[in-house]
């Protein structure tokens, strides 16, 4: 027989089923419970923000890739993930135009300007949130009551504890998500379900969330032990604010977290420590965003400092 048209390639000749779009889709699936929770608690406001955010992220991604003469790669689903995560960390009453501006910062500034997927140093959704927090502080601190949607209450559970020392905490509401806060951060239950899914699918490394949440728990447990009148306990700090969405979905973003196992431990613990320093002793009630962004910046250094032991030494 004639044997022309044989494929030639170097080994390996077989490949794992994992792929970048597959990993992104896993994250999207894991976010579904939190999406439902946010729509349940913040109704149509949540729905509109999510929709606008996803659509504008995908559109910005395609447009910028087109303008920069890059390959249009919206099929890798990473823009959708950024869109969902960005909406998840926005207050429900955010004006639509601010949301679109934020998406532009996330995709254009934080991601494509650095070279696109895989090259960004900072988590795009969080960098965009930091930008909005600096540019539009009033919009970014206007919280709604869940379910009733009474606008402009002012305080999240973290704010209440920090500024009014109101330690009368309803843990059930906190766990379910029936408190004011950003769209996707309030329901610990929904986030934990998504996190378990990601862990089972091995889409994220358990070291980062465990290091992060564990550090937050230990620090808040100890400070609560020392002065229980001022500081809330360990469980409160885990359930309140953006800690769970940060630890499960933001800090574990592979692009902006270290690749080594030791590096991931340090990264997670560092995130936890910075978060608690901000939460307990700074002028802000919440520190997850800045903690993760700060550790993002340290990622290349962590990679270099925590290389695995050379085999045989």
């Amino acid at each position: 027989m004639k044997e022309e048209n044989l494929y030639i390639s170097p080994g390996p000749h077989i490949f794992s089923k994992e792929s970048t779009p597959g990993l992104m889709k896993d994250v999207i699936i894991a976010l579904v419970p939190a999406i439902f929770a946010s729509i349940y608690f913040f109704k149509v406001k949540a729905f509109i923000l999510l929709l606008v955010s996803i659509v504008s992220c995908v559109v910005f991604e395609a447009a910028i890739q087109f303008l920069m003469k890059r390959k249009i790669a919206i099929s890798d689903c990473s823009a959708i993930v950024t869109g969902i995560l960005f909406a998840m960390v926005m207050p429900p009453s955010l004006p639509i135009w601010v949301c679109i501006l934020g998406c532009f910062v996330a995709i254009g500034l934080a991601k494509q300007l650095f070279g696109g997927l895989g090259f960004n140093i900072f988590n795009p959704a969080l960098l965009a949130r930091a930008f909005l927090a600096a540019a539009f502080p009033t919009f970014m601190t206007r919280w709604n009551h869940p379910l009733s949607l009474d606008a402009v209450t002012g305080a999240t559970p973290l704010g209440l504890v920090k500024f009014s020392h109101n330690l009368d905490i309803n843990y059930r509401d906190l766990f379910i998500g029936n408190v004011s806060g950003s769209l996707g951060e309030t329901s610990a239950l929904a986030l934990v379900i998504g996190g378990l899914y990601l862990l089972i699918k091995k889409a994220i490394d358990w070291r980062i969330p465990l290091g992060y949440i564990g550090t937050v728990f230990i620090i808040s447990f100890l400070t609560n032990l020392i002065s229980p009148d001022i500081y809330a306990g360990g469980l409160f700090h885990i359930l309140a604010g953006g800690l769970l969405i940060g630890a499960i979905f933001m800090a574990t973003d592979p692009v902006t977290s270290p690749v080594t196992k030791t590096g991931r431990w340090v990264f997670g613990i560092g995130c936890g420590a910075v978060t608690m320093v901000i939460r307990l002793w700074s002028g802000l009630p919440e520190g997850v965003m800045y903690a993760i962004l700060l550790m993002n910046a340290l990622m290349p250094l962590l990679n270099r400092m925590t290389r695995p032991r050379r085999y045989g030494t």
């Binding site: 990993l23 592979p254 990679n303 085999y311």
Partner: peptide
């Protein structure tokens, strides 16, 4: 496609390379 630093390669390398 571009590396997204998922670190699968680091996890599987039998001789501790990155």
């Amino acid at each position: 496609s571009t590396c997204i630093r998922c670190a699968r390669c680091v996890d599987v390398c039998p001789v501790n390379l990155v």
